Simulated assay, not measured.
Amino acid sequence: MAQVNRRILPGFGISLGFTLMYLTVLVGIPLLACVVRVSSMAPSEFWNVVWNDPRVRSAYLLTFGASFVAALISVVIGLLIGWVLVRYEFPGKRFFDALVDLPFALPTAVAGLVFSNLYVPTGFLGQFLTPLGIELSYSRPGIVLVLVFIGFPFVVRTVQPVLESLDAETEEAAAALGANRWQTFCKVIFPSILPALVTGFALAFARALGEYGSVVFISGNLPFKTEIAPVLVVEQLEAFRYQAATAIALVLLIASFATLVIINWLERRSRRFEDGR
């Protein structure tokens, strides 16, 4: 009697077909539509829209710069929060752990509105910060602040499982050999969590590139000062310049995708290096 080779997951063909259909309808076709619309533009026209305009270049610089800075800050904050949630027990731990996911569930427009009301000169916090010269409303630091708010949960949720899976015996062995806490963290813990930190950085950076709702209220949208690229996309749509809006959006899309590809490549290289050691 012939032996039947059973797969681990039954109905694999149906599942794969559904997955491909989902990716095609919800991801592939919309992306292809963007490319098709932009392809109708002449190369010179496309270049004029996405680069020759000084206002667009200024928006790119602010968008990428603020996203990069916010992602770096998110890595630090996310690592600290993940470390505390994993390594310590304290009252209200479950509540604070659930609170990390609030930026995922909260509409970003609501977050932007709350932050802008807090940090305006007459706001609850702004009335104390503005006399000290700290202006977060309608400023670039305010943009970074809201991007950190939406980005740090990605870092927490990527690094938290890795911290939970670390073997305590390795740290105990390092301590027995004379390593202090800082040496143990740098030589034992950090190399193990580095791929997760890199992944969290990439997710936070890519998320910040396309953020609109939380930034539009607190930035003030001043051209050449606090205007980000997603705001330009919306303005182009409101002016019925659909090709220009799609071209700018395509640049952001390519940048986000390239970031994820590069980070995934670096993560694989890091894992191979650790396996080789």
Rank of each mutant, 00 (worst) to 15 (best):
F149W: 10
L118S: 05
S44C: 04
R94I: 07
R55V: 03
S58M: 05
T158A: 07
W51S: 05
I77V: 15
R157K: 15
V159S: 07
I73Y: 08
Y119C: 04
L61F: 10
V162G: 03
A66L: 06
G142F: 06
L102K: 06
R87E: 07
T130Y: 12
A42R: 10
T63W: 01
V162I: 12
F154Y: 15
I150T: 12
P153N: 10
V162R: 06
E172P: 08
F90P: 00
G133H: 11
P91L: 12
G151W: 04
G133T: 00
R157I: 04
P91R: 13
F96D: 02
I29P: 01
L102Y: 09
T108A: 10
T170I: 10
A33P: 00
Y138A: 10
L118W: 13
A70H: 05
P91G: 03
L147P: 03
P153L: 09
Q127F: 11
R94M: 04
V36K: 08
S40G: 14
L132W: 11
V49K: 01
Q160V: 02
A66S: 15
L163P: 00
N117F: 14
F96M: 14
E135V: 15
V146H: 07
N117Y: 13
L132C: 03
V155D: 10
V156D: 06
C34E: 05
A111F: 00
V110R: 07
S116I: 12
V146L: 00
V69I: 15
R157S: 13
Q127C: 03
R55I: 06
W83P: 01
L113P: 07
I143E: 04
F128P: 06
R37H: 04
F46V: 04
A98M: 15
S58R: 02
M41D: 03
V144I: 13
V76T: 12
V56P: 00
L163K: 02
I143D: 02
R94G: 12
G65W: 11
P43R: 09
Q127L: 12
V49N: 03
V156P: 03
L61A: 15
V36E: 05
D101C: 11
A66D: 01
A98P: 01
Y119A: 09
L132T: 07
T122K: 15
E89F: 00
S44G: 13
I134W: 12
